[in-house]
């Protein structure tokens, strides 16, 4: 496996419409990086230009420091797993897996032993003689994975590999991919629009929007500290408060002359956000003298999530979503006070 560096990659369509703009990305040897974003954000285009299926207009793609951006796709020695599986329908499972090895002029008995070993890893040794049309979706995707790994590629590219599978299988498959990736120390680039899938599997995540990478960071950092409104919104933050003015020392002025303290201190912050589960709900009776970082509100309605309740709360700053434990249930119409712990309130820039 190898290290991948993408530097200032740009792709445009018909020389005008920019699809990708200045993409910079590094995948360390043996690391799994995800490209996360909504459809049309350019994540698949990024993957396809790295694979060599799309010609980039600018920038470099370096594998272990060597620029491969002008090397044709069939000489790059990458593996790729497609959303549609893309198995060769006229070939059996065994022939599908052996296909890349034959192109590398691997001969028997090496050929068979490597194919068998790979089919064993994905648990499909018993299905070797079948044709792809005789397999289920999950089995087909496992063949596709085996086919792309058997050639010992320097980089494995996965283009939404799980999106055609049902929910339970999706979790199973992503754990299997992660397990194989760690065991064989593979360098992988994984494209997905599913944020939970992405956090479950990745070392680093690049969140993309409109052809640029908005944030490239470790999974934990992205989850706990999104930098822009788009990233926060896409990974599940639901409460956004517009900032009218940056005061000083982490203090921001919001609508209705409310003053909030956040974890960040920057004049570039345009809104504040907090995860629904980080908001504390306090009963109105326990009158609190210190109303800093607090909002009065009224419960609109609640939904039961099993391990918690999720509330919609009407406040002067609009509807706020809060999640709290099941030890106490607040009723619709009940007046409450919301407390926003300042270390959990994040500042977002544009």
């Amino acid at each position: 496996m190898a290290r991948l560096d993408v530097k200032h990659l740009a792709v445009s369509y018909n020389g005008k419409n920019k699809i990708l703009n200045d993409i910079n990305l590094t995948i360390e040897d043996g690391e799994l990086v995800s490209l996360l974003g909504p459809s049309g954000c350019g994540k698949t285009t990024t993957l396809r230009s790295i694979a060599g299926l799309i010609r980039s207009n600018q920038g470099q793609i370096l594998v272990d420091g060597k620029d491969i951006s002008r090397i044709p796709v069939y000489k790059r020695n990458f593996g790729m797993v497609f959303q549609s599986y893309a198995l060769f329908p006229q070939l059996t499972v065994r022939e599908n897996v052996a296909f890349g090895l034959k192109n590398q002029h691997i001969r028997e008995p090496d050929l068979s032993s490597r194919v068998n070993e790979m089919l064993d890893i994905v648990g499909l040794l018993d299905y070797a003689a079948r044709f792809p049309s005789q397999l289920s979706g999950g089995q087909q995707q496992r063949v596709s994975l085996a086919r792309s790994l058997v050639t010992h590629p320097s980089l494995l590219l996965l283009d939404e590999p799980l999106s055609n599978l049902d929910a339970k299988l999706r979790v199973e498959m992503r754990e299997m991919i992660r397990e194989i990736q760690q065991r064989l120390k593979l360098t992988m680039l994984f494209v997905t629009h599913d944020q939970s899938e992405c956090f479950a599997i990745s070392d680093h995540v690049a969140v993309m929007n409109k052809g640029v990478i908005e944030q490239f960071d470790s999974s934990e950092s992205i989850y706990h500290h999104p930098l822009t409104e788009f990233v926060a919104h896409f990974i599940g933050y639901e409460n956004f408060f517009q900032v009218k003015k940056f005061l000083k020392n982490q203090k921001y002025l919001l609508d209705h002359n409310l003053e909030f303290t956040a974890a960040d201190s920057s004049p570039n912050v345009i809104s504040l956000t907090i995860r629904p589960e980080d908001i504390e709900i306090i009963e109105k009776e326990t009158e609190n003298s210190d109303n800093h970082n607090q909002l009065e509100g009224k419960i609109l309605f609640s939904t039961y999530l099993g391990d918690s309740y999720r509330y919609q709360i009407d406040t002067p700053l609009g509807i706020v979503i809060a999640v709290s434990g099941t030890d106490k249930k607040y009723l619709s119409g009940q007046p409450i006070v919301l407390n926003f712990p300042s270390q959990k309130v994040l500042g977002l820039s544009k």
């Binding site: 694979a51 060599g52 299926l53 044709p72 796709v73 069939y74 000489k75 790059r76 020695n77 990458f78 593996g79 790729m80 497609f82 959303q83 549609s84 893309a86 198995l87 060769f88 329908p89 006229q90 296909f99 890349g100 192109n103 590398q104 596709s144 086919r147 792309s148 050639t151």
Partner: peptide, 26 residues
């Protein structure tokens, strides 16, 4: 599905050879 053809390229088949091995039979 054109990704079948693309998959053969990624696995080391040239475009011309991919046309004969993947497109024609299908």
């Amino acid at each position: 599905d054109s990704s079948i053809e693309e998959a053969s390229w990624v696995l080391g088949t040239s475009r011309l050879s991919g046309f004969f091995k993947m497109v024609l039979p299908n």
